[in-house]
Design a protein around this nucleic acid. Structure first.
Lengths: 68, 68
DNA sequence: CTTCAATGTAACGTAAAGGTTACATGTCAG
DNA sequence: CTGACATGTAACCTTTACGTTACATTGAAG
């Protein structure tokens, strides 16, 4: 069961006019963390997923989903 | 910003009549993982949070929330 | 009370999340 | 073209998620 976690962070972030650095500050992680999550390099914790969804005004399920 | 991730896994799991072992099998982790997440001993990955929410027929936000 | 299933939890190991710092590359306004 | 800001990414480190196994405790049914 090889599932990858896809997301629409970049799409939504740019819609709202945030840079990675601004989003990072809002959810209290580093810019690198936002960048790597956004690019699917690693899977965030549930805590971070909830914070990101809140900051981007989407539900966790709208922001992240399992593929494959 | 000391936030802990609270959840209603146990409440919902017993409502649906699952044991920890059954839920674990459905979301493809060990019983220990379900047990420790349920008891707040650790924060699950976003992937696991999404699978648990799906298995328990709730949204991630209904199943998990940030306290404090 | 006894038995058995369900749950809690401890020790230990591995893999991955996420931080820090630094630098390279993209991109766009002027 | 040039400078400034945004983004990608590499090296390295620490913490923690999650697995395995095993055992103790709880609780409900007979």
């Amino acid at each position: 069961m090889v599932e990858r976690l896809a997301n629409r962070i970049k799409e939504r972030r740019t819609e709202l006019g945030f840079t990675q650095a601004e989003l990072a500050e809002r959810v209290d992680v580093t810019r690198k963390t936002v960048n790597t999550v956004e690019n699917g390099i690693f899977t965030p914790s549930a805590t971070l997923a909830i914070k990101l969804a809140r900051a981007l005004e989407l539900s966790v399920e709208q922001l992240f989903w399992l593929e494959r």
